[in-house]
Design a protein around this nucleic acid. Sequence first.
DNA 1: GTTGGTGCAAAGGATTTGCAACTTG
DNA 2: CAAGTTGCAAATCCTTTGCACCAAC
Lengths: 141, 141
Amino acid sequence: MSFAEHAIAVLREKGYKVTRPRRQVIEAIGRAEGAMSPGDIGKMMGEGGRHLDQVTIYRVINLLCSLNLVHRVFSQGGYVRCDLLEEEGCHRFLICRGCGSLQEFRDEALCRQESEAARKLGFRAEHHVTESSGLCRDCRD
Amino acid sequence: MSFAEHAIAVLREKGYKVTRPRRQVIEAIGRAEGAMSPGDIGKMMGEGGRHLDQVTIYRVINLLCSLNLVHRVFSQGGYVRCDLLEEEGCHRFLICRGCGSLQEFRDEALCRQESEAARKLGFRAEHHVTESSGLCRDCRD
DNA sequence: GTTGGTGCAAAGGATTTGCAACTTG
DNA sequence: CAAGTTGCAAATCCTTTGCACCAAC
């Protein structure tokens, strides 16, 4: 099942309407290799498909975020589809500075150690986000 | 040596002029417990000390960032002083959702494991940032 | 047919730029 | 004194809000 199919199924399941603008944003984010800002999505619509109002894009992105279908990438100021089905737990991003592509993953052991390091400093960590930059397999050579 | 003293020494050393606005911003960030946005700093100046132009605040913050004297806190949209003297390597933030206070630390072992996890996915990580939210010692009770 | 969603207009912030006047070293 | 900095004005960009119209269920 593709990201778009999954996202649309979730919308239906939660009682949200499946509209043309929502499909368009979902497909744009689903196809993107890296993070997309609301502006990026707007420009892409302007060229290819049918025009989408900028305000609508913001609203759709907010909805998708609240459903954990996309995540905000802080260091890039954009959003990416979330391919991890588990809704809980922390997520980590690998962001290629060569091609801008982005990979998300989870690692329970790292999460635990991160929390443990915080605990030693008297801090009770509840949630954390990590963003790594570097070079992906294709850009290393 | 306080943060402000250290920051001013670095400015001098790198050939930047030590002006009143720069002192003011450095002292504001140095005194703050948590992250401060450019707007926060502007408001604080309006009340206490002498007024500072918003544009100047942006420019001073950019300078301090480029010198690694302050770091951007993504999840908060603000900036904090960096207390770690080593300029290299990754940094981690503990951000209290109770009082908003912020603590920065380094952990070599975590850094290595983070990189190792990336490597297993074919990614060569060069740098990473982690922000954890939770409760600090004082807010846990 | 209802309810929720979209598009438009407009407001509100945040951030950047150009340039003349000023201050530091 | 010269070079680097600041303050102001204004431009630009990003994001949100209110409301009438429209489309999905």
